[in-house]
């Protein structure tokens, strides 16, 4: 075996020096390939620049232009308008509420999944169902909730016929802000399962063994080891859920046909009618406001993730 290997490698050494230097070749190889290799990055860079960088820059920049195209701060000042502030407040409140509920329920599901076979049927089904509901539902989740708790929805009718409970006694709230809470939770819980489960699986069995050999109970394990180790991940996932709800548009757009109670819907009306508060380019200012919130949340998220990565080495 060893001889055969040497005989394969040996003749190559003479023929192609580059192969011999394979282990520490950075300097010599880079010199030979720099120009063509670098060109290989151009398509990706150009694509990102044109379809991610440019649109983002335009979205953020138009907020600083007035109707005639000259620089102005009036649209940015409009962010302080009580109507806009209420909308941001609604968005943040809705996102925070559904993120907290979603992360607690999702974490409970993750706990229940500890110790199940990662390639087994249960996990495959849970993973796929979570993926569909968390990321691709959008419009379809709005339909699902119209069919469930719409005026003629299954649950609405059942509650009315069997218990005499009218969930819309105080008016139909499904198509307004409160109506978004249940559909949002419906995609937040699956997202929590997708993002938090890997952290739970990072809990090392040695820690449980150390806990047991030092005389700790199940409660000590969770209280002294599990919860402290998982807290940064949990908070990180909570922030990710917040960001997810905050940037979500499709479900709300399909559910509420009029009114703009949350920021994404306000951007829609600013884009389509351009008469929100009688200003043009307000969409740009709203986009800027959203980006500011998202950047804060996602920066905190990545800091927390770095903190939690400490335990996952």
């Amino acid at each position: 075996m060893a001889d055969a290997l040497v005989s394969v490698v040996a003749p190559l050494e003479g023929v192609e020096p580059a192969a011999v230097q394979a282990r520490r070749p950075e300097s010599s190889r880079r010199a030979a390939f720099t120009v063509p290799s670098f060109l290989g990055l151009v398509p990706f860079a150009a694509y990102i620049l044109l379809f991610l960088g440019l649109p983002t820059a335009i979205a953020l920049f138009t907020g600083f232009l007035d109707g005639t195209g000259s620089f102005s701060l009036t649209n940015i000042e409009a962010l302080a308008d009580p109507l806009i502030l209420t909308t941001f407040g609604n968005s943040i409140g809705l996102s925070a509420l559904t993120a907290v509920i979603g992360s607690v329920v999702g974490a409970a599901c993750c706990y229940a999944l500890i110790g199940t076979n990662p390639t087994g049927l249960l996990r495959s089904v849970v993973d796929s169902a979570s993926g569909v509901l968390a990321q691709f539902g959008g419009v379809m989740l709005a339909f699902a909730f119209v069919a469930t708790i719409g005026i003629q929805g299954m649950v609405t009718v059942y509650l009315k016929d069997s218990f005499g409970i009218d969930i819309f006694a105080d008016g139909v709230w499904l198509y307004e802000l409160p109506g978004l809470i249940l559909p949002y939770i419906y995609f937040q819980v699956p997202l929590m399962i997708i993002t938090f489960l890997p952290a739970l699986e990072g809990l090392k069995p040695q820690w449980a063994e150390a806990n047991a050999s030092l005389g700790g109970s199940r409660a000590t394990y969770w209280w002294r080891i599990g919860i402290p180790v998982l807290t940064p991940s949990f908070l990180g996932c909570l922030l990710l859920l917040f960001a997810n709800a905050f940037s979500s548009f499709a479900t709300a757009a399909a559910l509420t046909s009029q009114g703009s109670q949350i920021v994404p819907l306000q951007i829609r009306s600013a884009l389509t009618s351009e008469t929100v508060l009688g200003r043009e380019n307000l969409a740009g200012a709203l986009a800027l406001g959203m980006i500011v919130v998202m950047v804060i949340v996602m920066t905190l998220y990545s800091l927390l993730m770095k903190r939690s990565a400490k335990w996952q080495r």
């Binding site: 991610l52 649109p55 335009i58 979205a59």
Partner: peptide, 24 residues
């Protein structure tokens, strides 16, 4: 850097992207 760029669309909501995509 590539990882950062590829994960960036999570931070930039589609509804924000679309504001700038219209002129593009």
């Amino acid at each position: 850097a590539i990882e950062f760029l590829c994960l960036l669309p999570i931070t930039i909501p589609a509804i924000v992207l679309v504001v700038g995509l219209a002129p593009v």
